[in-house]
Amino acid sequence: MLHIYDGTFDGVLCAVFDVFALRDEDAEILPADRYSGASLYYTREVNADPSHADRVGNMLERFRPGTLRRLYTAWLSHDEHVEEYILAAVRCAVAHKADPFAFRQYHAIFELDRLATLVGNEAHRMLQFVRFVKLRSRVYAADIRPEYDVLPLIGAHFHSRFRDVAFMIRDLTHLRAILSNPREWYIAPLPAENPPLDADGEYETLWKLYFDNIAIAERRNPKLQQHFVPQKYRSFVAEFRDGADARR
């Protein structure tokens, strides 16, 4: 049976719940936006009931806290097979009454863990590479261009760290933005065209000065530097943006 869900993470958990409830041995799960409208399968729409999602989530968390977050991280990759892997992982957890990520010898678990690592690592890179500029309105703003949709994974970190100001982080790849103020943070859609942010004047200049002077010339090692700061991120990291080498 083909189960069509609403494209949310709760939705995919509900779909998994339905697969178990209907004892569907030959299930396939797809988000509505990837369903072409034609399938040889018998097709049904998933019943989006938050309590169903909770039951699946609680079951996974009971085996090992953090499993649900890892599943969510992998799901954010929006890989075309991710629903298949998630269903396999839940089946594995139920069969063995254990944390599914313990069984990396299974192809689906291995792939799911790999996706979670890819997305999780990029989210961590955004904690490193977000560079705010202070706008005239005293709002701090930053642009990023991540490959994956990592905003949901980084919002809480920045909100608790910069809890006394308003800030915004624009994801120009997925056209979404984190908006945060001292009370709350949320994710909002962005228009297709976004004006570039102004440079941050004095402190950005001081930062570049520091960046250039903290390196030990005798130990110069661009290859190692590149390993940690890949080219694809350099366009939005202030000290790399206009070519760190050009300033030398």
Partner: peptide, 16 residues
């Protein structure tokens, strides 16, 4: 952050 966060890497490849 318990695990620490590096923010940049200088030309010698050491973290900042």
């Amino acid at each position: 952050a318990m695990a620490g966060i590096c923010h940049s890497w200088s030309a010698d490849g050491r973290c900042i």
